[in-house]
Design a protein around this nucleic acid. Structure first.
Lengths: 244, 244
DNA sequence: GTTGTAATTTTGATTAGTCAAAATTCCATG
DNA sequence: CATGGAATTTTGACTAATCAAAATTACAAC
């Protein structure tokens, strides 16, 4: 029997949650998992115990949860379906990048392997989704690159936005309006600790300011040199293109 | 809260089941519903009582079930999603018509209104899906035309296949191999009651034979006049009789 | 060390959907 | 009009997923 949507969601959130943990830590606290899934804490505990029973996660009572190899496999295939779906909805269906998340959230649990591979092919085996999130390959391998954020990157140097780690439509529209989509360039002019603000300007010269919270959600590539895909280095294109 | 997939499936099967009833009857026996859904008889009874409670069906104990206006509304929107999805998978995704049913079966419960209307638009507001089944319009109206079958149509006259009422992939491939997809022409040469067989030939002259069971699944248009010449019914063709 | 608080787990209940098997009802046939 | 199947409904039980609230545990601060 295939895993339920619920199981897939738990595994996906464990994966994403562990990824958000401070460097070094690998156990996701149950509370964070419960919040991410929008369920009561007790519900998460019960479910995680069942997942541990079926060998999909390691569970340490009072400490947290982490994926096993089997759980990782499943989590990344769900992520693959989600991210390919988002890119498909933008690229093929012509939807806006700020409105595809909810659809993808549902579709990720029902698209068949056949269909998702068809989509992958149609998109030219893309590396990242519209938010810059990496798309795992068919057997679950995923290359998570490390990026600076607009809060930590060097001041004065032109950097390229690589990834936007927030799905809120309003935020995404803001990002788009200010030319901060993945592939576009910006320069940090300075930071004001007291005001909790980051000042920047785009290639066109337009200057504006971001709160620290927002700045930390914009992951940037400080050395957009050879290693970065050709399609991602363009400064102002509204759309990114799949490579190959 | 939105109706569950289960509820949507029950309503869809009631709609389809009632449609398969002998002329005049409007109450679908619980047994048939249970078989169509692949559940135990008692399960169907319990569920249908709940649906009646929420005003989606009329339920007459021991007699059967039928849709209310509200239930009809929901059933046809599910059918709309299913059929548009099937056509989309064939037309846009390049899948074969015999392999899209299962995907559509799942997708019909999760695609958003926004996405399905986007698909409808992309397909040019089609009237029928790849099997010739009519696609309800956004507010649930559906024009069910009446067709003969290869078992009942006149002998010797060239007719046009309008609809194939079986989703079995093997059967669909057979239909395709013999040029019997919706829009294609055939002529019935004769019928053999004893042998349970129907003899026919295509426009190219190739003659072959069908069992009665198979022949009854091929609905044909005996007067493929102006509106259906191209093989697909046009958007604003002459209206037939209303259903009910 | 004790203790207070926050995080976590346990407990007891609920809802949706399901099944197997027993009980009931319908109805055609004699 | 009695009756024996067939169809249907009822009953009792089960699973997955959830919640609220009580109980427990961990741990930092005193």
């Amino acid at each position: 029997m295939p895993p339920s949507s619920t199981v897939e969601n738990y595994l996906k959130e464990v994966y994403l949650g562990v990824g958000r943990l401070p460097a070094g830590e690998t156990l996701l606290p149950m509370g964070q998992l419960a919040v991410a899934l929008g369920v009561a804490p007790g519900t998460a505990t019960t479910m995680v115990k069942a997942l541990a029973e079926s060998g999909l996660v390691d569970y340490e009572p009072y400490n947290g949860v982490r994926l096993t190899a089997a759980g990782m496999r499943l989590a990344t295939t769900v992520l693959r379906r989600h991210r390919l779906m988002e890119l498909f909805l933008v690229q093929v269906m012509g939807m806006r990048w700020d409105e595809v998340h909810d659809d993808a959230e549902h579709l990720e649990h029902v698209v068949s392997d056949r269909l998702i591979e068809r989509i992958d092919e149609m998109l030219g085996h893309p590396e990242t989704d519209p938010h810059g999130d990496p798309i795992p390959n068919p057997d679950g391998a995923i290359r998570e690159r490390h990026f600076e954020t607009l809060l930590t990157c060097p001041i004065g140097a032109q950097v390229v936005v690589a990834r936007v780690s927030d799905q809120d439509p309003a935020f995404l529209r803001f990002v788009e309006r200010h030319g901060l989509k993945p592939g576009q360039s910006v320069t940090v002019d300075g930071r004001d600790e007291a005001a909790d603000a980051v000042h920047l300007h785009g290639p066109g010269g337009a200057a504006f300011t971001l709160g620290a919270r927002a700045a930390s959600k914009l992951l940037v590539d400080v050395a957009p040199a050879s290693s970065v895909a050709a399609g991602v280095t363009r400064a102002t294109g509204p759309d990114e293109e799949p490579r190959r």
